[in-house]
């Protein structure tokens, strides 16, 4: 089965599972998870240093071959997201940025409006922008026009593990977007990830479900296999389930009527 590699921001990804560094019981598990899953892109966040504690460096657990995707978590406005993105780039984290602007602390829904504004600014500054959004087709097209390198619609609220609750809306993005669609947030099980890939998503981003599993290293592998299986199923064109409609009254019977009634190329 031939698959095209996924290209985002000029980098190629043969593995379509993207992962995150949040919520691990021990950051040393991250390296093991990356090795077992083969994930080639991982998110990190930027925070103020706790001046009283030492703390370890999360970047030490991420091999140089893995693309870092800093997020703008904590930002509540486009301006804040822009600032965090610039800091992350200056810090030597590369050009990739996941825009995450959340103004709603109850459901943690991304603010699409602020996210679009931040995307417009950062794409002009040469960032590889991956905006995290509610799946909204007209917005996705605007993001595309603004120069987003991908769109990352949520499947369900962050950390909820509820799966693809927004499947039919994501399907519209998959069908109409010309940049990769990466399903982010809400994916709780490998079967959810497989379903997203079967639909034609270009990749999925999974953090909580891997990090909080009893064995994150094994779960990383499980997600990676599910993503590959889903992708393969998509490429193989699954059989449809609907049956042929049975004719109640023929619509084309008239074509068999007297020949001179019809145009015919046959003599």
């Amino acid at each position: 089965m031939n698959d095209e590699v996924l290209i985002i921001g000029g980098r190629t990804f043969s593995n379509r599972l993207f992962t995150g560094t949040g919520k691990f019981a021990d950051n040393r598990l991250i390296a093991g998870m990356l090795a077992s899953s083969g994930s080639q892109m991982i998110t990190v966040a930027l925070r103020r240093v706790d001046l009283s504690a030492g703390g370890d460096n999360i970047l030490d657990h991420i091999p140089k071959t893995v693309t870092l995707l800093p997020n703008t978590s904590g930002a509540r406005t486009a301006g804040e997201a822009v600032r965090i993105a610039r800091i992350a780039r200056e810090a030597g984290c590369g050009d990739f940025i996941k825009i995450e602007v959340i103004t709603d602390t109850k459901y943690l829904m991304p603010d699409n409006y602020e996210t679009l504004q931040a995307t417009e600014i950062l794409a002009k500054e040469g960032f590889v922008v991956l905006p995290y959004v509610l799946p909204d087709l007209p917005l996705a097209k605007r993001l595309e026009n603004a120069g987003a390198a991908a769109v990352m619609p949520l499947g369900a609220p962050i950390g909820s593990n509820r799966g693809l609750e927004t499947a039919s809306l994501i399907a519209l993005l998959v069908e109409n977007c010309h940049v990769p669609v990466v399903v982010d947030a809400g994916i709780g099980r490998p079967s959810h990830a497989a379903a997203a890939m079967e639909m034609g998503a270009d990749a999925v981003l999974v953090n909580t479900a891997i990090a909080t599993a009893q064995d994150p290293v094994a779960m990383g592998r499980a997600f990676s296999l599910a993503v590959a299986a889903g992708r393969m199923a998509f490429l193989a064109h699954m059989a449809e389930t609907s049956a042929l409609a049975r004719a109640s009254s023929p619509l084309t019977g008239f074509l068999n009527a007297v020949e001179n009634e019809c145009h015919s190329t046959r003599p």
Binding site: L244, A245, R246, A247, P250, L251, T252, G253
Partner: peptide
């Protein structure tokens, strides 16, 4: 398969 195609087309 014109007839089944036509049926689906109409639907």
């Amino acid at each position: 398969f014109l007839e089944p195609m036509a049926q689906k087309s109409r639907q």
